[in-house]
Simulated scan of single mutants.
Amino acid sequence: MGLELYLDLLSQPCRAIYIFAKKNRIPFEMRTVELLKGQHLSDAFAQVNPLKKVPALKDGDFTLAESLWVLAAKSLKVDPSWLHGAGVWRQQWERISSGRPMRSS
Rank of each mutant, 00 (worst) to 15 (best):
S105R: 10
V88A: 14
G38N: 12
L5M: 07
L51G: 05
I17Y: 02
R31C: 09
A72V: 04
R90Q: 13
F20Y: 14
A56D: 03
E34S: 12
V54E: 04
Q12R: 12
M30Q: 15
I26M: 10
D79I: 03
S81I: 00
W93F: 11
R95L: 08
Q39L: 03
E34C: 10
N49I: 00
D59C: 05
E66R: 02
S105T: 11
K58Y: 07
M30T: 10
L36Y: 13
A21G: 00
W89N: 06
L41T: 02
G85C: 07
R103W: 03
I17E: 05
K37T: 02
S75A: 15
S105E: 14
K74L: 13
P55A: 11
V88L: 12
L7W: 09
K23D: 13
S67N: 04
N49Q: 01
S104Q: 15
E66I: 07
A46C: 09
M1H: 14
L57P: 03
F62K: 07
Q47S: 13
E34I: 13
L68Y: 10
A86V: 05
G38C: 06
S11H: 02
G60L: 07
T32F: 07
V54W: 00
Q92F: 06
G87S: 07
L10Q: 07
E29K: 13
L71M: 13
V70R: 01
D8Y: 03
S104R: 15
A73Q: 05
V54P: 02
P13A: 12
V33P: 04
D79T: 08
